[in-house]
Design a binder for these strands. Sequence first.
DNA 1: CAGGGTATTAAGTTTTTATTAACTCTGCAT
DNA 2: ATGCAGAGTTAATAAAAACTTAATACCCTG
Lengths: 225, 225
Amino acid sequence: MDNKARKVLIADDEPDILEILKYNLSNEGYEVVTAKDGDEALEKARRIQPDLVVLDVMMPKKTGVEVCQLLRSQPAFKDTLIIFLTAVSDEGTQIKGLETGADDYVAKPISPKVFLSRVNALFRRLNKTEAKVLKIDNLTIDPERFIVQVDDKDIVLAKKEFELLYLLAVKPGRVFLRNEILNQVWGNDVIVGDRTIDVHIRKIRQKLGIDCITTVKGVGYKFEL
Amino acid sequence: MDNKARKVLIADDEPDILEILKYNLSNEGYEVVTAKDGDEALEKARRIQPDLVVLDVMMPKKTGVEVCQLLRSQPAFKDTLIIFLTAVSDEGTQIKGLETGADDYVAKPISPKVFLSRVNALFRRLNKTEAKVLKIDNLTIDPERFIVQVDDKDIVLAKKEFELLYLLAVKPGRVFLRNEILNQVWGNDVIVGDRTIDVHIRKIRQKLGIDCITTVKGVGYKFEL
DNA sequence: CAGGGTATTAAGTTTTTATTAACTCTGCAT
DNA sequence: ATGCAGAGTTAATAAAAACTTAATACCCTG
């Protein structure tokens, strides 16, 4: 797994839409690139190799469906996530889109909230990395046994604490925005305050007794021994 | 059981069937790949090494029976599960199929519910590690004689209690989700509430008199002396 | 030193599990 | 048949743990 933020390419000919989606995705920690037509989308997709491509179905130069087909025909984009934005809730287009290999749809007019849940849901699904024992220095995190060890001493973490620690520890050094943490550990649809994260971080630090989570002020947290 | 998703290959020339089965299996957490004829099935089977292959008996290119025979002739597919879909409840075909090495049949028209139970049942059966006497410290669990001993003193457990204890004890330390327990001990198609597990756990603890089952709140249970 | 975070506490809520008792179902013996 | 006995399940309540919030103190950074 890479330690970098997920890259998202958004293609739509309406600047407003681009603006709104870019803003919202950036806020969640995604790296966003935009394109205003099908050709530009293709070109940028090849260049930046995004993890997710958001395509307006109706675009100049090439339609979203065409772009999708072209992308899917290349092995490099086999696993790239693709979401369509459809202006009309055109059932026909939806079916055709799914056949073309899109992973999801969002109907216009777009609700940023809905859009974000969908995007996050896709990545969450993708993210389900199989539970793997992590060993970092004198720290062991074993999801199978649901146990954390420091210097061979067992430490019991509660569910959320464990998930949070695991999330951070899978990618040491990578900074997780508070929003990313909320998405991964709590799920995007749950609404909890920011302080909740602090409290859990604190408990983890306390229980582990070692300083392995670093605060990045105004940004988030990262795992670092 | 394992933390990886089981891979299932479905081969049928009717898109509807593929669609329905794929949908249902995906919902259960299986990873599904489809093929529309015998040749494609063979090719994909070799590529993805599925845990289960679902074969329509009547297919273009190669029939399900042929595919099955070809697969079974390769060592790599010795343990791969194979299910046939038979359009006619053709007794003759069924016999021939079983001889070819299929593990089960589902007759068309297919009920998704029935199909799922069969699939789950197969995997459950596969999972059933052979009955083996477990000795952990002063605790002995003998599935053959269906008896549990603590400090050489016999303790009688009821069937479900025993199965549950055995499940946990086979992999000490490993946390079993409530769902996993339900699948393994009760079977995936039986609908019983979560509290049922609690009650059985309690009885086991009570009868054994030793604290060997640990609760992991919000996650499940694990065996641990 | 002010202001925008973050840490720390303690208290309040919710979720989850333990416990107990009652109820269903089945087989078996009367 | 009738009824008893044990297994299994459900339901209700109690208890515990986990989670969230809110209030306050703290600490950088500009």
